[in-house]
Amino acid sequence: MGIRKEIASSLVLILCGAFFLLYDTRYPLDQWANPGPGVFPLLAGGIWVILAASEFIRAFRKTGSLTEEERSKEKIRFLREILQRNTGERKVLLMIAVFIIYLSMVKLVGFFTSTFLFVIVSSRLMGAKDWKGPVTLAAGTNLFCYLLFEVWLKLSFSRGILF
């Protein structure tokens, strides 16, 4: 993994840990004889931030020790990594968007209708060339979910406005 990624990830972790620590100040610490609800999160959050900071410092030191040539190589490597991975990552981003739409639709149009559409779209997104396969898969998945979860396990799914 590149140094830039190391720095970025440790920074995000420091921020998240610091946020939890700040939020923890709402809970009392009380005394050692009867520790309050804030003690354990304080310890866990404190160690989290310290470790993330040590990762940040370690990565930052690495950049300092690089020569000019190594630095430019690192930049090229970073860019190449972004370009190479972009093809797959675009798919992932699209899938995340489709997933968000699917989850938002469940309450509105119902679980089975939205699942039917989601399976078709996601299957196409993953590389299915035709429509027959994804549609059959979607129908089969719906039937399986209905029989197993709703009929046998008595799970109740949202029906939405259509049914």
């Binding site: 299957s123 396969g133 898969l137 979910c145």
Partner: peptide, 15 residues
């Protein structure tokens, strides 16, 4: 193929 397997995995995750 993952294109048939993975949508099912996602639906099962949701359930």
């Amino acid at each position: 193929a993952p294109r048939y397997l993975m949508p099912i995995v996602l639906v099962l995750c949701v359930i």
